[in-house]
Design a binder for these strands. Structure first.
Lengths: 189, 189
DNA sequence: CGGATTTCTTAAACTACCTTAAGAGGTAGA
DNA sequence: TCTACCTCTTAAGGTAGTTTAAGAAATCCG
């Protein structure tokens, strides 16, 4: 139940057995079904989620009800509305399950305690967020300098396991195009 | 010389006088002239920069020589090629001065020592990077769900002091459009 | 000061991507 | 098993943003 998350952490910091025990005791294991909602826009996000199995999606809905997929979280990924979680303000995004999934929750309160009890975790989450930042920066560059077709090519190369599991509409909303246009892009090949 | 950066840090962590002295001793103050290059694509980025005065721009150049402005750094901003700096791999971006500027440099080596000597800085840079991550995420959402005109409106509201100081071409490359189109957007009002 | 270079504007023709619509599978629920 | 409702495709017509080009305005520099 905790082997995946402990391996994830071990990639960046070393924990003693005692620290591992302390950390895992803070986690809550939950099972969610396909389409279950973890977070709604407007709610304060109180959890940082780690996906153990299945798939979770983060997306934004604008005034015209158009969805933009912010990220897909599959096994071994951390996912949350970072701004809402860290500042305890209303979320701008939705989080929901694309498949039946097993998710570990770390609450804001637990995280604040964790930083005090095991300060090494400051380093761990700094690295996790650093990597997330760099990925978003690369995505901004790609969105601004490439056509939708090029972005789609990169997406299927980078996330081949995700392409199989999500709908065309969701991929289109990640790329920032309509499903119809993605369909014609696919047909070109 | 260090008052701005110490105030910047004090917003997130408290330092003793001794820690302040240790920290500022790691910094190198440099003066750069307009158009001076701080980092070239392909070089390993060895410095994290803090802008004391003036303005610095980070941008990406694609195979067709098209520039995409990644960020503008004015007084009180941290700027670097994060991926290159942290992993000591070749940079994907350029950094150069838009005006004569005063910049403080923190080297990778100094930063590694800083984390050991004053672990509080793990927290500080985690927060700095968190904020940068959230900004990039919002930018992705805006790029995917808004028209160029809407993004321009938001840009001039959010960075009114920057608009005055940089060229139209640079703003256009931040928004991901051509200077010609930005010119027509401006003429519409 | 004057010439060179860069920046900005305008406009016409073009392309990437959107909108609307209609039909063909697939899947889920009564 | 039938019906309802998503998902995906295809295609025609529309719009946001690009390309090319040329001139005007501003800035740089000897």
């Amino acid at each position: 139940m905790y082997s995946l998350i402990l391996a994830n952490i071990a990639r960046h910091i070393s924990l003693t057995d005692k620290e591992k025990t302390y950390f895992t005791a803070l986690l809550k294991n939950i099972q969610v079904n396909k389409k279950d909602i973890l977070l709604k826009e407007g709610q304060v996000c109180t959890k940082f989620y780690f996906v153990n199995s299945g798939a979770v999606r983060a997306y934004y809905v604008d005034r015209q009800d158009k969805e933009t997929t912010i990220m897909f979280g599959v096994a071994d990924w951390w996912i949350t509305d970072m701004y809402s979680f860290l500042n305890q303000v209303p979320a701008i995004m939705y989080l929901d399950a694309l498949e039946n999934s097993e998710v570990l929750e770390l609450s804001k309160e637990s995280m604040d305690n964790l930083y005090i009890e095991v300060p090494k975790f400051e380093r761990f989450f700094r690295i996790i967020i650093q990597n997330a930042y760099v990925r978003e920066q690369v995505r901004v560059i790609q969105n601004l300098s490439m056509t939708a077709e090029e972005r789609y090519e990169i997406f299927i190369k980078k996330y081949p396991h995700i392409v199989q599991r999500v709908t065309l509409k969701q991929i289109a909303s990640y790329l920032g195009i309509t499903p119809e246009f993605l369909s014609t892009i696919r047909a070109r090949k």
